[in-house]
Design a protein around this nucleic acid. Structure first.
Lengths: 208, 208
DNA sequence: CAGTTACGCTACGGCTCGTAGCGTAAGAAG
DNA sequence: CTTCTTACGCTACGAGCCGTAGCGTAACTG
């Protein structure tokens, strides 16, 4: 979508895009969400403030894109051999991401704003949330191939369960990190994973 | 603490306190966190802006107190007869609280700010989080009396488990409501509770 | 009564916002 | 190369909010 066919005129500078998003992350680290201003970001990026407004509607959208880059780079799900190991791995990975000052200060802020902005919520979903959810789907598919989890024939029920697991994992890690403000160390990750895997096993055994 | 013994001079108006906190909640509903200004709150409360600044350091502290009142009024844990019913009850109750526009727009915002403000985090903890966590402790104590959960002799381990359960419950509900933006209906509450109770049972059985 | 503290009101400098206007720069089409 | 179109940098602006200071008045205490 960077190449609208009939596009004429001077193209947008991709370098400016990078500089702006980099500057946004830097300012997030140094000043935090609350004191981040578009003027400051523009100055750091070596770009005119108007250029910034031509590409993003405001602070929210800019920060979502800046943070989404981090999720792109640092979320993956290598096969660790078992459901338990896969869950524990993604928990640690997500926790490490949330531990960065850029994401810690920004993620909750844009989510809060999104409760009153449908377009922003959709942007967050497609840029961040859906990528996380895909890890859950991938993890489940692997567990099913290994025989650790049963196949769910009903697609609606399967989707509901995946959503539930996603909310539990992401929610617990976020709450632990941002609200309780305690570290997700190895002990917590193991305990949480044990709880979740135990619940999944109970559900699989109980309903079968 | 409203009656410092040697206190002299004109006392602070309790009515003004109420009016300000009420106005804060009203503005949160109508304008949301982002557009809430202290000037607007003062005007609605029929109070001078300076009066507001004499009592609260800023927007964050004010909103925490305004929201904390709601938690005080709407969080309780009647004995529903079983661990499962108690958990499902608290999940529904917390979800209903998060579904209010005042809390939905404000809670995540102040949590986001608290990542860079230790005093604010402490205020949130004592005014909101600890009250929630007490419900977890109460629910566990009841379940132990009923024989549904084993007594944990090690107090450190017991505290860790309670923290874990708290983060899982609160985190999942928050994530479901604010990030996934899906309702916590009866079906979700049942599914989540089943997952959690199953995990607890597995942990109790596995370690015993 | 005097002493002390809270209140309402006004006013202010400072900062950020988001936009408009203008001249210039960079590709695309002829 | 010329013309067209769009992006860019820069400046300037009104608007809004912030947080504080100053002052006179109100309320309660000893």
């Amino acid at each position: 979508m960077n190449r609208p066919q009939g596009r004429t005129g001077r193209p947008r500078s991709a370098e400016a895009d990078r500089a702006i998003l980099d500057a946004t992350r830097t300012v997030l680290v140094e000043l935090g969400w609350g004191k981040l201003t578009l003027g400051e970001v523009a100055a750091r990026a070596g770009v005119a403030k108007t250029t910034l407004y031509r590409r993003w509607a405001g602070k929210n959208e800019l920060v979502v894109d800046a943070v989404a880059d981090l999720f792109d780079e640092h979320l993956e799900l290598p096969d660790r051999g078992s459901l338990r190991a896969d869950i524990e791995g993604v928990v640690r990975q997500f926790a490490a991401l949330l531990d960065r000052p850029e994401t810690k200060t920004a993620l909750m802020a844009v989510v809060a704003e999104s409760t009153r902005d449908e377009a922003l919520r959709e942007r967050i979903r497609s840029a961040i949330v859906d990528r996380q959810k895909n890890l859950v789907l991938l993890g489940r598919a692997r567990a099913q191939e290994r025989g650790e989890l049963p196949y769910e024939p009903d697609p609606v029920l399967a989707a509901r369960t995946a959503d539930l697991i996603f909310d539990v994992i992401a929610g617990a890690v976020v709450h632990r990190t941002l609200v309780s403000a305690e570290p997700v160390d190895g002990e917590w990750a193991r305990g949480f994973t044990a709880l979740l895997v135990g619940g999944l096993a109970a559900a699989a055994g109980g309903s079968a």
